[in-house]
Design a protein around this nucleic acid. Structure first.
Lengths: 156, 156
DNA sequence: TCATCTTTGGGATAGCATGGGATAGTATGG
DNA sequence: CCATACTATCCCATGCTATCCCAAAGATGA
């Protein structure tokens, strides 16, 4: 489970250390790395392990083959996402276009969101954080116990 | 799993490098290459590994031999598709008719869509990508948890 | 305070995309 | 049936980029 927020440095080669806690989450899933794509909600990136992609795949399989929405989601997620493998030091090298999309410059903030995580420019994230806190406060009554956990789990 | 989008060059002989990540997906499946056919949805090509063809075959086997739809799909996919073997450098040589069908000129974009991929003219793809993103945003609520993972999975 | 793990830096290396020439295979015409 | 021309495939070479590997600085917890 992706938890907490960590800010790391992007070096001259475009490499970033993925937080060790995050690496532990995706460890032993066949692919030693993460998958990252530009969010369609704003100027930041979203990411997760390969298992998350497979979950998305299954979810899309539940829709009609030629459903307009299904095709759009497939294109927006799979086509835009990059599998980024860890180097021996646990870093990924962030492609330049993704780097630019998120408006990064030298530093990135990894934000754990349970099943997936986000990658923000630290300044942009801080601006957003205040807004999110008040939104969370408004919605806190919606956080309540679930009778029985679903087998296999859900999605974000 | 086919992920991300890559743009490569078509040389004077009609050869294109298939992205290394895509080659890795189809590696070790008996046939060292990909299968490509013209999409019946637009001016672009669709493709996948030989394993995808076998999946289609199984899916069609579920229909009656003389089912009208079965025959039409067989024609559109199997008859129009070309097995294209990699050369030692991981390239395929794209037949001229397919090249023309997709309106390519010098450059092609490979678009990963999970189980299969598409081959577009870079300009045409870029035009399409923006539309797909907004459609995906509208439809994102439909991406939801599936209770039980289907064994074997489905089609594209 | 020390030991261990994580993050960061930089040089070396291997893999990838691409170009061009050589060779074999196929089709066409005599 | 043979000869020619064309095409497609193979093979090698090259510039570039991404990845690997090693090493040091920093952080964390005992």
């Amino acid at each position: 489970m992706f938890l907490s927020s960590v800010t790391n440095k992007v070096d001259a080669k475009g490499r970033v250390s993925v937080p060790a806690d995050f690496r532990a989450v995706v460890a032993g899933s066949g692919f030693d790395g993460i998958v990252v794509w530009p969010s369609f909600d704003g100027q930041y990136l979203e990411g997760g392990g390969m298992a998350l992609m497979e979950e998305y795949q299954r979810s899309l399989d539940a829709l009609d083959y030629y459903d307009e929405g299904r095709i759009a989601l497939q294109r927006a997620i799979f086509a835009a996402s990059r599998p980024l493998q860890f180097d021996t030091g646990g870093r990924i090298s962030l492609p330049k276009d993704l780097h630019d999309y998120a408006g990064l410059n030298g530093h990135v903030t990894f934000v754990g969101l349970g099943r997936r995580f986000e990658i923000w420019s630290p300044t942009a994230h801080e601006e957003r954080a205040g807004l999110m806190r008040s939104l969370a406060k408004e919605n806190r009554h919606r956080l309540r116990p679930v009778p029985t956990p679903l087998p296999g789990g859900g999605m974000p």
